[in-house]
Write a protein that binds this DNA or RNA. Structure first.
Lengths: 119, 119
DNA sequence: TCAATTATTCAAGGATTGTTGAAATATGGA
DNA sequence: TCCATATTTCAACAATCCTTGAATAATTGA
């Protein structure tokens, strides 16, 4: 991830509604959620959610696909991982005391490492 | 780290000059840098750097201390680590495929783990 | 084709953020 | 005390971002 993309990602995550949407989509998993459901859950108007979804897509953190009348949005896990790596590489450079504690958390969400080719 | 602080941190990092300053301060290490040197290296005016430094401090990502006539700014490693953890916990929840690749990067900056009490 | 559903786009206005240069504040030395 | 240094604060303006509601577009079923 280059600096330009990192800036766009930070900008995308710096807004309450958008952060909420990202969390929502991550926990919704790969099947994603239609725009309408996102709007309802986030309690914002359709046009407003559309504005924020476009912003998030522009940053690369989410993707969309049409499915019949609905447009389904999903979190882009690879982009999220890249952003975490950016923060680690960038900010840890020469200073393990930053990212060692962060790394300690990683196992919490990696219960099945054996099946994981590191793509 | 709560959502409010995470939002402030993302907002702080979403501006080019400020991201540059954070990178600068992290690689400068615990001794930090005086405002003037930061301004010079970032090529912005004193008043402008002051504006951004205040923003970064408000987010908790950096700290300041006066030292004679200079004001020395340093990266707050703990805050940066917390932000990385926030992104991991938040975004990995139930989806190891996000943070496993990120975790794989961690060792790159942890060459001396033995001396590290995890504070 | 017509109506209903789902969602986006657009323009307008308000709110927030960023930049600039001048004035103010704090510190230390002559 | 007076001056130089290092930095911040302030006010004004420019730029960007967010919200709203109305209009538009795409899809499906009757």
């Amino acid at each position: 991830m280059d600096e330009r993309q990192a800036l766009a990602s930070f900008s995308a995550l710096s807004q309450e509604t958008r952060l909420q949407i990202v969390r929502m989509l991550v926990s919704a998993g790969p099947s994603g959620m239609p725009a309408g459901a996102i709007a309802e859950k986030a309690q914002v108007s359709p046009s407003n959610v559309s504005f924020h979804l476009k912003e998030l897509e522009r940053s690369g953190l989410i993707t969309q696909k049409r499915e019949s009348r609905s447009i389904i949005y999903s979190a882009d896990y690879e982009a999220l991982g890249s952003l975490i790596r950016f923060l680690m590489e960038d900010c840890c450079a020469g200073h393990p005391e930053i990212c060692v504690p962060a790394a300690a958390v990683a196992p919490c969400c990696a219960p099945t490492m054996e099946g994981n080719a590191n793509e």
